[in-house]
Design a protein around this nucleic acid. Structure first.
Lengths: 221, 221
DNA sequence: TACATCTGACATCAACCCATGTCAAAATTT
DNA sequence: AAATTTTGACATGGGTTGATGTCAGATGTA
């Protein structure tokens, strides 16, 4: 056999274009497709029904491309969850920005954004409120971290407003965790009753607990 | 063929004894066995891992006996859940009975019983706090009903004590649901951090929110 | 045109699952 | 003793799953 001069390059050319976009672009598009399909299936039919096959069918992609972006379906769940909590947090922060700088208006704006977002995106609501719990230890930890983030967000905001100095109250972390849990539970109840109550009701009820906690903290400090 | 005079009775004799107990007794024992095994597997490894096989293996029974007592594994989950919420509720009611008849002591006794029970029964905690959500619409509804029951319990007790007349506050149901959610979230956080904090911390933090809500309601009514 | 890469439909594989069925051995009754 | 019921171990069937592999055709490059 003569020494072959032409050595065919085995590594794929990432810059090669296909249907108008590069390899990386196409890869990213597929990733986004899968993320969206994941949210749709998990939020629409539940995580138990979210098999690799069903997600790929929803995304209009082949199973091979699933494993191009995710190690397994739990990895997809984690990414979808992170994406949506970030989305929700951004919406709340944007609402804070626009709000007046006084106690009630501030908290109300954030809560309004929270409930509005869930109301307008039932898939997100089901994912964040129901499907995320009890999947695995890894996912439970993710849930825990997200809750901590929301608690820190609330605490930071109230403190920056100088609403209440609750530094004298013990276990602030827990109390803020409890407030987050209260809002989540009100949201779950709302979702389970098909969002029958007006948004204003769930906002005001949540606000009631926030203000009550702040007042009591201020009085006992 | 001559007319057979002896007609063998096809229906099984329920009063027949076997290993010392009647048919009904044995049936009930198997039922209890399965309930316990269900709690053990679901609470220990999660509902996803709770196959009919694994539950029967844990119970020391054959799969045939599973379907003697339950239509499917979801039916088992429902029964286990009902049993354990009843258990938890009973423990709290017993604590209320023994408590002094004043506001803080009363609420504290109930919360103490709640957290003690979960702490002493991690399987129950995992089942009630994590595994029950997002299984199916039927189970979600069961969760909803249980939360309503706890909310009603709390409301009835505080009202019977004359702690606070919050009849002027709108959406009482929601607010009590929120308080239940706060306690649940504190419990979840506690469980996810391996029960590191002392029981007194979670009790006092929960109590803080209860008293805060009551005080604010009383002042604004 | 000839060649390389990308894509989608589908096959494959072992491992589970639920639910039901079979059957011989054990326990009880007659 | 013989007959009957109960039990436990196991087999079976139809299905789905996760993950990987095959391969012809579409789309690109030279």
């Amino acid at each position: 056999m003569p020494t072959s001069i032409k050595k065919p390059p085995k590594q794929p050319d990432k810059s090669r274009r296909y249907r108008g976009s590069s390899g990386d672009q196409r890869r990213n598009e597929r990733y986004e497709q899968l993320l969206g399909a994941g949210l749709s299936v998990i939020g629409g039919q539940g995580y138990a029904a979210a098999s690799v096959r069903s997600i790929c069918a929803e995304a209009g992609l082949t199973e091979r491309y699933f494993y191009e972006s995710f190690a397994n379906r739990e990895a997809l769940l984690a990414e979808v969850y992170k994406t949506q909590t970030r989305f929700l947090k951004d919406r709340m922060l944007a609402a804070f920005e626009k709000s007046e700088r006084n106690s009630a208006a501030f908290a109300r704006a954030g809560l309004q954004a929270f409930f509005d977002t869930l109301h307008q995106n039932p898939d997100v609501a089901r994912l964040l409120l129901f499907e995320i719990l009890g999947v695995s230890d890894t996912i439970d930890l993710l849930y825990y971290e997200a809750m901590e983030e929301f608690a820190v967000l609330i605490r930071t905001l109230t403190q920056s407003l100088g609403l209440a100095d609750i530094s004298g109250v013990p276990n602030q972390d827990m109390i803020y965790a409890g407030l987050v849990g209260a809002v989540l539970q009100i949201a779950r109840r709302w979702a389970l009753t098909d969002y029958r109550e007006p948004v204003s009701s769930v906002v005001e009820s949540s606000l009631f607990l926030f203000i009550a906690a702040n007042n009591y903290a201020a009085n006992s400090a």
